[in-house]
């Protein structure tokens, strides 16, 4: 007997798999690019966490005209970024710090923005993004817009003052937003037990007067279902909501982290809960997709990443002198006087 499809058609069920494959293929492509010396700065994998981002984003209204829901993703939620319309080639341009990237080489990886498509890239102190999304969704409420926001952050960010201040503000103002805590059990090398005394982040919700729910973050349909229900509640004036995704960060904090503080036996155990493998089996078992259809998806996403990465490699880096541009909307920053052809400080 087949499992319930949560209202998704066959195409939708396969869409989810496509997004999972795209996320993983993009990150695997980045690993290759890094070995080839094309990646500027750190590279962060979401291996084992892909279903959280995909399931959550798929449950929201994704539009391109600035009227849809608003996403704040993280480095380990690239699948959500892609679902909200973030272009694959821009993802590679960002990682390669190209002048053609959305931030023109000023910012790294997934830290980019498109308010028409409805995503705001994070800044590195992730707790801040709770405050930012509180303000974005406050604007939805006071203007009576039928929009909600969703903000991803890690178990570590839950310890920051910004997280508390942003969440408390949102709860009091009944901001229509969903917080998604990606509890992958590690904040760099610090385990969750050293970030909080509670055994589940859902225990924090009552302290703020908001509803919470924990969900298996390796199960894309379970995440989709939880976020869909939360979104209904939030959209109908239910205020702020929090969902905890439980899974495991199977790679180091970044590629430069050998993760030697984690018991390898634990990592191997979590390999058996790989979100792509689990969902692929269900698609076949429930006859939501055929083996051939899945192989096409796998080949297509691999190829899309290859093509986009190749195109991004060929593009130029920004001119160094562009570093002075864009500090203000209306005030020009001077170039260093020592860089002019006839250096003279009085002329700078």
């Amino acid at each position: 007997m087949s499992e319930p499809t949560l209202g998704l058609e066959r195409a939708g069920l396969q869409d989810l798999y496509r997004s999972l494959c795209l996320t993983r293929a993009a990150e695997e492509r980045l690993e290759l690019l890094q070995k080839q010396g094309h990646v500027t700065g750190g590279l962060y994998r979401s291996l084992g966490q892909e279903a959280g981002a995909v399931g959550a984003a798929y449950a929201l209204r994704r539009r391109t005209d600035g009227t849809g829901d608003m996403l704040c993703h993280t480095i380990r939620a690239a699948g959500a970024l892609f679902l909200f319309g973030g272009e694959l080639i821009d993802y590679f341009r960002q990682y390669m710090a190209k002048g053609t990237s959305p931030t023109r080489g000023r910012e790294a990886n997934v830290h980019w923005f498109d308010f028409q498509k409805g995503f705001v890239g994070p800044v590195s102190p992730l707790g801040t993004m709770i405050e930012i999304m509180a303000g974005m969704t406050l604007s939805f409420r006071v203007r009576g817009e039928d929009r909600i926001g969703i903000v991803f952050y890690g178990d570590g960010a839950s310890s920051t003052g910004a997280w508390h201040e942003g969440l408390n503000f949102a709860a009091v103002q009944r901001c229509p937003m969903i917080l998604i805590v990606e509890n992958n059990q590690w904040a760099f090398s610090t385990p969750t037990s050293k970030n909080t005394r509670v055994s589940s982040f859902t225990e924090k919700g009552p302290g703020y007067g908001i509803d919470t729910e924990a969900v298996d973050g390796t199960d894309v349909l379970a995440v989709f279902d939880a976020v869909r229900r939360a979104a209904l509640q939030v959209r109908s004036g239910g205020g702020t909501h929090m969902i905890e995704l439980n899974y495991f960060r199977r790679k180091g904090h970044a590629q430069h982290d050998p993760q030697d503080y984690v018991d390898p036996v634990v990592i191997r155990a979590w390999e058996k809960k790989d979100p792509l493998d689990l969902y692929r089996s269900r698609l076949l078992h429930n006859e939501w997709a055929s083996e051939e259809e899945l192989m096409v998806i796998e080949e297509q996403t691999f190829e899309e990443c290859r093509v986009a990465a190749e195109a991004a490699i060929a593009e130029p880096y920004p001119e160094g002198s562009e570093a002075v541009l864009g500090v203000y909307t209306d005030v020009a920053m001077p170039h260093p006087w020592t860089r002019s052809n006839s250096p003279d400080p009085t002329l700078a």
Partner: peptide, 25 residues
């Protein structure tokens, strides 16, 4: 909606102001 008394949390409401500014306020 236009004169908002906030919790005592300068970081929280200044951050929220930044989010609102992104949305055209």
């Amino acid at each position: 909606n236009r004169v908002i008394d906030t919790p005592i949390a300068e970081g929280g409401f200044t951050g929220a102001a930044a989010g609102a500014a992104h949305m055209g306020l």
